[in-house]
Amino acid sequence: MTKENSRVILHAEDEPAHAAIVRLALRHNAGDVQLRQVEDGRSALDYLYRRGPYENSAISPRPDLVLLDLRMPHVSGLEVLAIVKKDPELQTIPVVVLTTSDIEEDRSEARACGVDGYLTKPVDFDKFVSMISELCNTWL
């Protein structure tokens, strides 16, 4: 169950090690934050639209921030982003892309879909952890 006034982050990530870093960073540095992690874009959409295992809003509350990996099975991060930003009910939720891709095409596509932030995962554990902490300070 969620605690009142705590902030909720929905994180869609198919790489377990990357998901673990985000969990660790939030556990140590982000105070009263509830993290909900899903393994692909389809589950992220199920969560946002409260379908299937995410029907119960007490267990799966509306997120205050969505973190999206770009390349995920079934539904990509860009597809999730496009759907969220077109939906009047969801478009106010900030969406930040968190990916290893630093190519301009991905950045511009994300911008075109209305992304609120675009971060490249660093190949450095400490930098990755501090990036997540800064991210929470900025958006929550």
Binding site: A17, A20, L24
Partner: peptide
């Protein structure tokens, strides 16, 4: 590489 570095860091 991010996975290896993250796991080793953890």
């Amino acid at each position: 590489l991010v996975s290896i570095e993250s796991s080793l860091g953890l």
